[in-house]
């Protein structure tokens, strides 16, 4: 491999606690596409404008899986407006940095969140 991952990325990759699906979610964000190798599905449960649960399914590299897992932790118990303020830099910082070629995987996670919230708003 031509780069190294932080311990935090590897830790989350090995044990992604938020992997899975939510039955009857209030919003789903689907991003990426199979031929690029990266696909992310984010499921959120919302109560009184607050995200009470978030889960993901991701096909991708260790960074993509870690970002998905971290994103779920970070948006849980946040209200929609605050969740929307989350940026990819917040994610990268939390993971102790990420190899340059993997920066786009963090963007993917933020995109998935925005799509999920949009989906939630449309359903309302």
């Amino acid at each position: 491999m031509s780069f190294q991952y932080s311990d935090e990325i590897l830790r989350r990759f090995r044990n992604p606690k938020n992997a899975g699906e939510i039955k009857n979610p209030d919003g789903i964000g689907m991003v990426g596409n199979r031929s690029c190798g990266d696909v992310m599905h984010l499921y959120i449960k919302v109560e009184n404008n607050k995200i009470v649960d978030a889960k993901f399914k991701t096909l991708g590299c260790a960074a993509a899986i870690s970002f998905s897992d971290l994103l779920c932790d970070m948006v849980k118990n946040q209200n929609i407006e605050d969740a929307l303020k989350l940026t990819k830099d917040d994610l990268v910082k939390k993971l102790g940095g990420v190899p340059a070629p993997k920066l786009h995987c963090s963007l993917l996670a933020v995109d998935a969140l925005h799509k999920a919230i949009e989906d939630f708003k449309n359903k309302k």
Binding site: M1, S2, L10, C61
Partner: peptide, 19 residues
């Protein structure tokens, strides 16, 4: 990476692995 955790060395041609 998961195989590496189990002490097994292989290689990929994966895009995600190349810089």
């Amino acid at each position: 990476l998961s195989l590496d955790d189990k002490g097994i060395a292989v290689s990929t041609s994966s895009a995600c692995t190349s810089s």
